[in-house]
Amino acid sequence: MRIGNHTYKVDYGHLIFLTAIGGYVTWYLTNTMSVSTHVNNILLVAPVSVFALLMLLCVVPQCIQRADAAEEQAKPEQYDPLSPKLPTERRQVARMLMLGGALGVFVFSLAVIGFDVAIFLFALAAMAICGERRPHHLVPFAAIIAVVLVYGFKALMPYPMPTFFL
């Protein structure tokens, strides 16, 4: 993007994220106000929501950087566990996203296909994503995980756990 003499780089992903956050906060605020405008309801929520939206407006300009400035920033930094960085290499990112996706399928399938089956399938997928390809390692290990964890958790917690086989 060019404005005047400078080339600007826009981080669209960040803008979309900010829009989502802004959308949620605005919705939450209007939802709260529609329930009641009594002080007992909005004492903290209203000011904090407004504050969040103000901060959001301050962050928006940070999504747009001058191209030369953007390059300057991309220097290696020391690892800080409190502000972790995602891996940048394409293969690593792909692995991570696949694992995240598998986790999503896993949590939504738990109640439908039973915890035992879901754990077995997820363990299989997760190991494969992490690089294990030998079937004679994958299948028994996933089965062991499923059996041990299902029985273990059944013994540990006072809740029923829907399972298919176990």
Partner: peptide, 11 residues
């Protein structure tokens, strides 16, 4: 309202 049993019937 799907219980696991219902799900099994469907699958």
């Amino acid at each position: 309202k799907l219980t696991r049993r219902d799900a099994l019937k469907f699958t």
